[in-house]
Simulated scan of single mutants.
Amino acid sequence: MKNIIDKSEYDVLGLLPCPIKVPVEIGFDNMINNLGNGCDFKYLIEGNANYDVMWMDESSDIPLKEELPKIIISSGVNSFYRKDFRTKAINDKYFKEIKNSKDNLMLNDKEGNYYIMALNYLVMVVDLTKLDNRKIPKSWGELLDSSFQKEVAIRGKRGKYCETTLLAIYKDYGIDGIMKLKELVGYGGHPAEVIKNVGKGIKNSPTISIIPYFYAKLLKNNKNVEIVWPEEGAIVSPVTLLIQGNISNNLENVVNYFISDEVRRICMNASLPHPHDYIKFLNENNYKLNWIGWDFINSNDINKLLLELNSRL
């Protein structure tokens, strides 16, 4: 069972992807120790998988600014991307801008409220022992039109599959794409569990898995596995930093830590890079990123859309 976070309990709430949780927390604790008795705020740095932010479910009212932590890090296109929350947060100036790199205009929030501090991106992993002479899909489109019925794994479980996978497929291929995906998905779960059986020829295991690259690269030396970076781009799941205005000097130190070169190195080493740090790698490999984009986010009621898409699967 996941733990429930009280909306008013913390000044700093960092829900981080598993690979960066420990090193970011160590650096954060060092920063806190340097503050000494000057640390006058409550904080929680945890793995995103272990907690639910329960005040932001699809049926809840929008929280007031004072009900939120002053600094929030969250993973994925979550309830902070709800249309009604986003509209209120922007109109009522909940958050202040942190300048993004001008080299990453596609990922920049035009309103300046949401700072993408790291990229979790999803690729395809193919178990060659289960391919049976079939063609390996090189794109999301080829996968949707393939014959891998009930042989594909995605993160999550029925009723709550990976939101960025569903949204990206819907953005590019509409409901027809979601219905094709339905025919393909036969497995769900945490990526760490999915990769255990890849390349081993196990009967009841997926042939193709859609998982974060930091899990996929653990299999890069396995001769029975092929990692496919889809032609349309790896699907982006953002790690987002939100900061309220008029925070204390100590909390400014927290912000400076989260946007520091130290944290950027941690994220890069874990294959969860800051957008700016990944431009060279993408260009050198002719890779693309598949980000749903701020126009899509602003024109869709994300929570309601995800409920509908999950109901189709």
Rank of each mutant, 00 (worst) to 15 (best):
N48D: 11
N113F: 00
S299E: 10
V22G: 05
V254E: 03
V236A: 07
Y115Q: 12
K138N: 09
V255I: 05
K288A: 04
I195L: 01
L128R: 11
V123P: 02
E25T: 13
I208V: 05
E163P: 12
V24E: 05
K83Q: 13
V152R: 09
I90A: 15
G38P: 05
Y257V: 13
H276W: 04
E58D: 12
N33A: 15
K200P: 03
N290K: 11
N33H: 13
S75V: 15
F258V: 01
Q244L: 05
G112M: 11
T240F: 14
N224D: 12
Y114T: 07
P137V: 15
G188F: 02
Y257P: 04
E66M: 13
G199F: 09
Y257K: 03
Y43I: 10
K7S: 14
I211T: 07
G199I: 06
K150Q: 11
K280P: 02
K203I: 06
S299T: 09
A270G: 03
L167Y: 02
L166N: 05
A270Y: 01
K99M: 10
H276N: 06
A89F: 09
K65L: 12
A89K: 14
M1T: 15
N133C: 14
K93F: 07
Y187M: 04
S139R: 03
K304V: 00
L68T: 08
N310P: 04
L181R: 01
R82E: 13
N37W: 11
T87H: 15
G189F: 07
N222Y: 12
L131H: 10
G293D: 05
E262Q: 13
I302C: 01
K135V: 13
V125Q: 04
I26R: 06
D92N: 14
L64F: 09
S8P: 01
A192N: 04
P206W: 10
G233K: 15
K42F: 04
D103Q: 08
Y161S: 11
V126Q: 12
Y43H: 07
L35G: 08
V228Y: 14
P191G: 03
G14R: 07
A192V: 08
Y287C: 00
Y187C: 03
Y81P: 00
A234L: 09
N283P: 00
L181P: 00
L144M: 05
S75Q: 15
L241Y: 04
D176R: 01
N256V: 02
G38I: 05
N100G: 07
E25D: 14
Y213E: 04
E97R: 15
I195M: 02
G293H: 10
K2M: 08
S101H: 10
D295M: 10
E142G: 02
K180H: 05
M268G: 00
K7T: 03
P238Q: 06
P238R: 09
F148T: 09
L119A: 03
W291R: 00
R86W: 00
Y213K: 05
N250F: 00
E231G: 06
G141R: 10
D29L: 14
E66D: 11
K130Q: 12
V194A: 04
I178E: 06
S74K: 15
V185N: 01
A118E: 09
G177Y: 06
Y215L: 09
I297H: 08
E252W: 06
S74V: 15
W55D: 12
P230H: 07
W229R: 08
I259L: 03
N100A: 00
E151I: 01
S79D: 09
E284D: 07
E111L: 06
E183K: 08
L105R: 02
I279W: 05
S101Q: 05
F148K: 08
